[in-house]
Design a protein around this nucleic acid. Sequence first.
DNA 1: CTACGTCATGGTAGCGCTACCAGTTGTCGC
DNA 2: GCGACAACTGGTAGCGCTACCATGACGTAG
Lengths: 342, 342
Amino acid sequence: MIKPRSRRGGGRPTIADVARKAGVGAITVSRALREPGRVSEDLRRQIESAVNELGYVPDPNARALASARAEVFGVLVPSLTNNVFAEVVRGIYDSLSDGPFRIQLGNTHYSGLEEERLLQVFGPQRPAALIVAGIDQTPASRKLLETAGCPVVQVMETGPDPVDMMVGFSHFEGGKAAAEHLIEAGYRRIGFIGARMDPRSQRRLAGYRAAMEAAGLFDARLTTTTPVPSSVTLGRELFRDALAKVPSLDGVFCNNDDIALGVLFECHRASIAVPKTVGIVGFNDLDMMEVAFPSVTSVRTYRYEIGRRAVAMALAAIEGSRPEQRVVDLGFELKRRESTAR
Amino acid sequence: MIKPRSRRGGGRPTIADVARKAGVGAITVSRALREPGRVSEDLRRQIESAVNELGYVPDPNARALASARAEVFGVLVPSLTNNVFAEVVRGIYDSLSDGPFRIQLGNTHYSGLEEERLLQVFGPQRPAALIVAGIDQTPASRKLLETAGCPVVQVMETGPDPVDMMVGFSHFEGGKAAAEHLIEAGYRRIGFIGARMDPRSQRRLAGYRAAMEAAGLFDARLTTTTPVPSSVTLGRELFRDALAKVPSLDGVFCNNDDIALGVLFECHRASIAVPKTVGIVGFNDLDMMEVAFPSVTSVRTYRYEIGRRAVAMALAAIEGSRPEQRVVDLGFELKRRESTAR
DNA sequence: CTACGTCATGGTAGCGCTACCAGTTGTCGC
DNA sequence: GCGACAACTGGTAGCGCTACCATGACGTAG
């Protein structure tokens, strides 16, 4: 029978067109594209020129269906506008832009349920790897990750029980280092100000608390938190609240730099001397903390590098070489600046 | 541990399993899922329960192959960390999270060539719609968009010649309004400070220039720009340069808020009074501009709304109802604040 | 000379789904 | 009672690609 000109496909050339033009079988074209080493020099050249002439591009959907494996990385982050995750995502994109892999990005909005829903959407696509932020998946999410049949990298944090692999650092230690620095600098009534209070912020708070208790300085009234999403505006408001509660407050560790910036601006506005009257420490060390006046002490984290490393580990796992180190701690660095230099 | 999935009979239930269980044909299951109205109440219920019992989820790859249309929105933005695009992308995600559509995000890094490459990658996937930032596509990119065979929405800007649809605002008018405001406020030696200088920044500069020329105040030495990516740090440096060039500078319009913030911090550091000695206007009106001290005048833009609207237009077009208005101008608003109140 | 591996290539049979069309039933008008 | 028509349902044939063999041409060991 004569094949009717494909009802569905637009005009795009298929692998069969290339095969016909190059005078070879379709499967040889497929191989030439995916494993050039397994096709003779001769045919490879013919196929290449046929591909170029026709402008052939393989259909990723057909490829995924036939091989039961899509060339897609699933990436789940809790926020797209939070600079911290944006940096991680950028690291992932930059590491993947050379290769054949596409990226499927999901925004969980800091919700475990939403994370489950997205994993259920991602699963049937048979992604090549999954990268998820955080280590506090719901049991259902964890199960979905374990049965995903692909490498999984949990990023942003390290913990004792990886689903598969992990890249991050200890938020507890970060918070502890920040508080210890304030204590060493001579501050005594040191508050913790935190918005959103996702699990990572909780652990920073725990680190702060450990340091404060060790120094005999802990006081529950020094902690001011809210589940409301973080913003510079909110930083100002929380600082006002904290000050109203504890007028003797002489230092603050903020759960992130946006909050710290809000505190700094409020100090300017209320003519509170920084670092003399109040010391400020932020978290993440955004670019602007160094430029701020006074410059703001912050805990530097390696977000971009986390993204890159996560991809590197996932790619290695896809290649079959599981890294000996399944949990990578990239650490952090306390950047001491003017805001705590008294 | 992650176990690889075997190819044949690889685990998850297929539409045939559901059909068997419900005692109907596969095609009826397919219809019940996609067009419930075309299947009788009776069968629909049976199928639904079979789906739930088996935990069936359609394979998006097979679906895409069979229907020659993937349930994917392709989204191209020049940056993932720039808050402005992050907001647009967030609007897109939020608008699409209910429906069946996935999102394929590409980062062009402000490069026309990279944009072409990404469009070439997106095309074969047969996306349901494409959303691209900007209106300055290369001829090749434009052709790819025109022949993509799906709705296309250009976002962030409006212009005279849409590929298909557009949502944005006039950067020229925004820049013009900013400069006019400074002039009205009594500033005379008003500089333009710009980093990155992508096409949108160029048009803001053009708007600034138009206003300055109309007032007889334009002077080429007042303009300080660099192609270097924007940052708060860079804002400080550019402001120093500008001041060195023109010591009499008494106002600056910054091509974005990061730059404006850098200028503000440098003013603090150098004890330059704001708004008395120097007036500052930013662009985009990030949350922090209102909280800054002094609060910073900025041109508010509706990034999140742009994302939402772009999706709404694309979805309408997919449904077949092309909107009568193919170009939507969402405008902007000049937020007057302390940094220009003298 | 036979047995057996290795290499390069191709044919066949799906992957899981949907477009297309055909068949079956029930309803209606005349 | 009959044809026309709508409403529903299913069978068949792919979508474009790759996994899994099969094939034939060599070389190599015994």
